[in-house]
Simulated scan of single mutants.
Amino acid sequence: MSKLYVPKNYKPLLSVKETEKAIVLLKDFFQLALSTELSLTRVTAPLFVKSGTGLNDDLNGVERPVKFPVKDMNETQVEIVHSLAKWKRMKVTELGLESGFGIYTDMNAIRADEELDNLHSLYVDQWDWCMRIDENDRTIDCLKEIVKKIYRVLKQTEFFVYDRYENIKPCLPADITFVHADDLVKMYPGKSPKERETAFCKEHGAIFIIGIGGKLSDGTIHDGRAPDYDDWITPGPDGRPGLNGDLMVWNPVLDCAMELSSMGIRVSKESLKSQLEERGCPERAELTFHKKLLNGELVQTLGGGIGQSRLCMYFLRKAHIGETQVSMWSEEMLRECAENNIAIL
């Protein structure tokens, strides 16, 4: 069955033609503001990488990448990226960037195992970014400062849209609220991680949940994270694990918490070993990327991804991600959308 949520009396604030123009304006503004705020230079990204190198993002470790053999390379297997979490670290190292400077790129991916709904698509487009940091910057305070900078860019983008389309009213709060995933466990006993996100985000409007992937006080994890890019095991000053997190905003159209970005300080040699052991996959240490990291050949970085279509969907007040990107949907979902003023591109 279709997992479409239809907002009551939904009517787009922009026509399809206006939406297409607004998407270009919004993306151009956001990426310039982001690169300026974080001192990032643009680089060109791969659409696929060689299988068996450990370069692709394994997400939760169960999603299957789209693979194909290359005829002119002796049938070498390559796979479409899920994201560029590890590739970016190698690129920053290769460029020899100094601490405080980094890269961003347009990342296009296919996630064939995605469950399709208002927010999730087979096609993923995001700004993947990554910056070099010093070893002594592997702290929650450093991560929070970067989150605040990104939130400033979100606020600027919100005004940019409102200045051009007066019927799209700003609604982001003045500041973003930080919370550890373990705090949410204690604040909302008996609720699922998704229910905790919903309750807290509805109250605060814009939140950053710290500690995605690490074990919480009740023995669970808030959400899955691969063991080889974000550091979710190193404890902060309060002893709780996690140097990463998710940035979420309250979506007034869908009446739900909406993740716009995930980011984190990347693993050190020590935390990589620990996380591989905890996830039961120590054999990954023999892959190309992991060997480089364990041999001290990669610089320390902090990075993340920001969904492009999701960002446009949020700021243009759309009910479905298919209103801001072209992908594939079930016939049932397309029919429901057509019947409810949701103009899928």
Rank of each mutant, 00 (worst) to 15 (best):
K3M: 09
Y5P: 02
K11R: 06
S15L: 13
I23F: 12
K27L: 15
Q31I: 00
L32H: 13
S35V: 01
T41S: 02
T41L: 11
T41V: 14
L47R: 10
L47Y: 15
T53K: 11
V66P: 06
F68W: 09
K71L: 00
V81H: 02
K86L: 08
T93C: 06
L95W: 11
E98C: 08
Y104W: 15
A109T: 11
I110R: 03
D117H: 09
N136A: 03
D137V: 06
L143F: 14
K144G: 00
L154F: 14
Y162E: 10
D163T: 05
T177Q: 04
L184Y: 01
Y188N: 05
G190L: 11
S192F: 05
P193E: 01
E195F: 15
S217M: 02
G224T: 13
W232C: 14
D238S: 14
L243C: 07
G245Y: 04
N251W: 10
P252D: 04
E259C: 14
G264N: 00
I265V: 11
R266D: 11
Q275L: 07
Q275W: 00
E283S: 13
R284E: 11
L287R: 09
H290C: 08
K291N: 08
K292N: 15
L293M: 12
G296T: 09
E297V: 05
L298Q: 03
G303V: 09
G307Q: 00
G307E: 02
S327I: 03
M333E: 14
N341S: 05
